[in-house]
Write a protein that binds this DNA or RNA. Structure first.
Ligand SMILES: [Mn+2]
Ligand SMILES: [Mn+2]
Ligand SMILES: [Mn+2]
Ligand SMILES: [Mn+2]
Lengths: 219, 219
DNA sequence: CAAATTTGTTAGAATGGTCTAACAATGTAA
DNA sequence: TTACATTGTTAGACCATTCTAACAAATTTG
């Protein structure tokens, strides 16, 4: 069975994988905040366990088995976040650190009960999909707000970044998942957008913010 | 900050302490299922951290600081057990193993919310007292059922043993905390007691069972 | 008390996870 | 295409946690 440390490596590999499912050692090391030799030696041991495919100087890929373990940890992480928000009344900006720990708890029934109490949710509090109990994940395809056009009505569906700072920024603007926005205008010089939504007749959002907001376009 | 391993050692020391607050190394090792040299070396390192007082060949005692850390882990353990039973609908026989893991989560707010959702409980699902947030514990003084006399009416208040097997035995007899028992008789040969309670007009309990049941005597 | 048993200690080793220093391979740009 | 920068590897070390083997101190028992 994978240790917490190994689980974190598998999760990072899963999250960092590009379209070809490949990850560089340097990204992996950076994402886990360990030195490259540390990541290197762990990768070799993950290979021995059959969870990672590795050849000297080549990019890393997860095996089928490795991917499944990673997806199930992510499932526990996202279920936990949802539980903290919906059942225990945490703010969406407070849950990640706790979930980072609870995802390593070995107690199937604990997570089954969460799932059940939550009514089998498919997305976490930040709009990211929750893998199913077999580790299958249904990718959701939303549009970055930055790609939307003036005149469109959209609904906030997910985030590409869930840092505490960004979530606190959204809180300060009363923006949350489900918020419906009307796009009033877009400044072509700096890509700033002006939007309106409940109790906010005119709010200006920077390009940086618009890129991180994923929306569903309403007709 | 204490590691999970260290926390488990402190917790065992706390639970094993006799009236003088002393614990032998061999008990400690046995309770944690490690070899004596392992326990010995850990004890030395706990001493270095200022949590244990240790002199060669002498019994171990926790320092004030060590006791507090232990009590706060026990608080997290018992709050978790209560949460699992009351909020997540676990049986009292299913919670210990999960709590053994969750007690090591570092997330004050997580446990504060549990406490709040539970209405600030003072005992866990097995009747053991929950230390307060400062680590102060109010010992409850109940009587073992084995000391009760025929003719008395008592109420099941706590257990001296909470093994899964014992809890399942109690489940099989519909005995739970709060159950009111009338003591019908006690066999002086083998200390077996015959009791009656809701839907159980006459149930025979072995000495072993009676010693493990703590009761409040009703007038 | 002396012998036997139990309890505690030391030494030495293994594993998992981490580091720094040194160097090698690969990729990019002059 | 050679030089520079980036990326990856190896070697060697450290700390935490665990073990077994050997021995020593303390306690119990005949
Ligand atoms: Mn998260
Ligand atoms: Mn984690
Ligand atoms: Mn317990
Ligand atoms: Mn524990």
């Amino acid at each position: 069975m994978a240790s917490s440390t190994e689980e974190n490596y598998l999760k990072s590999l899963y999250n960092l994988a590009n379209a070809e499912g490949e990850v560089n050692l340097s990204e992996l090391a950076a994402s886990l905040q360990v030195s490259m030799p540390t990541a290197n030696s762990m990768v070799k041991s993950l290979q021995k366990s059959g969870w990672v495919m590795y050849e000297k100087y080549k990019p890393l890929t997860l095996t089928k088995e490795g991917k499944k373990i990673a997806a199930l940890i992510i499932r526990k992480h996202r279920l936990t976040e949802m539980f903290l928000v919906k059942v225990m009344n945490f703010g969406w900006e407070e849950v990640h650190e706790v979930a980072e720990q609870i995802e390593h708890i070995h107690a199937p029934k604990f997570f089954e009960r969460m799932d059940q109490m939550l009514g089998f949710p498919t997305v976490d509090p930040h709009g990211s999909p929750i893998p199913d109990p077999q580790g299958k994940i249904t990718p959701l395809s939303y549009t970055p707000l930055s790609h939307a056009k003036p005149g469109q009505n959209v609904q906030l569906a997910a985030l590409t970044n869930s840092s505490t700072e960004f979530l606190e920024f959204l809180n300060s603007r009363n923006l949350s998942l489900g918020t419906q926005l009307s796009i009033l205008s877009k400044e072509s010089y700096d890509q700033t957008m002006v939007v309106s939504y409940a109790h906010h007749p005119s709010e200006t959002l920077s390009e940086k913010v618009c890129e991180r907001l994923l929306v569903r376009v309403l007709e």
